[in-house]
Amino acid sequence: SHVRDCSHLQSLYLISQNDLCLHTPHFFHRTTSVLSKLLFALPNSPLQYPIQGYTVQPLSSSVIPGSGEKELIIKSRSLELLNDVLVKVSYTSTVYHINTGDLGLHSQIFFLVYNNSQVTIATKTFLRYEQLKVLLDSIRKFYSTIKVIVADDNFEPEHITGENIQHYIMPPAQGWFAGRNLAVSQVTTKYFLWVDDDFLFTEKTKIEKLVEVMEAVPELDVVGGSVKENQFYFSLIYEEGEETEGGCLYRKSNKKLHSVPGYPQCFLASGVVNFFLARTDAVQRVGFDPKLQRIAHSEFFMDGLGYLLVATCGDVSIDHQHVARSARYRKFRNPRKEDSEFKLQLHFFKNHLKCIKYG
């Protein structure tokens, strides 16, 4: 393989597997600003501290510029000695937040009036009309008038009827993310609830509980529940790398952060199970990359890292239909080797990454 300089280009493209372009200068022009320059405050005291250009990553320890340690206990009767030691003091962020290095969430008292006009249910269907009809029947059992949007890329489309059901037919086999984009693009309510077409509503599928959490903590963008008592969630950790290499992204399964204030059953995370309530405008800003057609759930949250504040709540759940997958469906559902390779290539170059690790 060989690398060539592409500084004359306006965008970064993967020419082929053996022909890569280094485009670092333009990338950092887009992602940095003058506020990244390190400035120090020089107050009328023995302390000097940075006021700009230094970021403490959430839930991590960072050395103050010029220091060499991350944790210190300082005791001294000598001001001169204390000043000498203070150059090694660090600050540890103890609160996770996507928009700043250290900002705590707060709760507020409110009265919630829930109605169907706040939420739209969205799903995408492919080769599973029988399961879709069971899902729709279960929705109507508990929410008789809520709007449902169905994106459909079947080869032989069937007509889906019912009150407050919007059925959008796509070209065949366009993929999961293309269908998600279509469905979410037609949502006009404040929130939407994403479900798979083979899910099943039960007495524990309480949309209003998820809405309550979202209304109480307006900074939240996505709140996930559990599927058949499986509260899947994960955390994403990004480590910045060198300018020419990019950073590393780590996805850690079953790793959650601290609880949501006022809701001990809910915890912050980076990604959740494929059953979640989301703020429509926030998700529309991130979008679903239509280049990813098959397995792509985690990749949505990777694209949303730093933009979406995500939580998971264990007291709201949905069931899963037990139906054998047809051979035709498995052919499209299971990714091919080239699909997996393309997915990694896309994320490496789109997000300027050196590595992605799963654990």
Rank of each mutant, 00 (worst) to 15 (best):
V3K: 12
V3N: 12
S11C: 07
S11G: 00
Y13R: 01
I15E: 02
F27Q: 13
H29F: 11
S36H: 09
A41C: 01
N44F: 03
N44E: 05
P46Q: 02
Y49T: 01
V56D: 02
P58E: 04
S60L: 12
S61T: 06
S62I: 04
I64A: 10
E69P: 02
E71H: 05
L72R: 04
L72M: 02
R77K: 12
V85A: 13
V85R: 06
L86A: 10
K88C: 07
Y96I: 00
Y96H: 10
D102A: 12
G104H: 14
N116A: 15
Q118T: 10
T120A: 11
T123G: 14
K124G: 14
T125N: 12
Q131V: 05
L132R: 06
L136V: 10
L136C: 09
D137H: 09
K141T: 11
Y143E: 08
S144V: 15
K147H: 15
V148W: 06
D153Q: 00
F155M: 11
E156I: 10
P157A: 14
I160F: 03
M170F: 01
Q174Y: 11
W176C: 08
V184Q: 07
T189Y: 08
K190L: 15
W194I: 07
D196T: 02
D196H: 01
T205N: 15
K206P: 09
E212L: 07
V213S: 04
A216V: 01
G224P: 05
S226L: 02
K228W: 14
G241E: 11
S259V: 14
P264G: 03
C266Y: 08
N274K: 01
L292T: 01
Q293P: 00
A296F: 00
Y307V: 15
L308D: 13
L309H: 05
A311D: 08
S317Q: 04
S317W: 04
S317K: 03
I318Q: 03
D319L: 05
A327M: 09
K331H: 11
K331P: 03
F332G: 09
R333G: 01
D339F: 03
H347S: 02
H347K: 12
N351I: 04
Y358S: 15
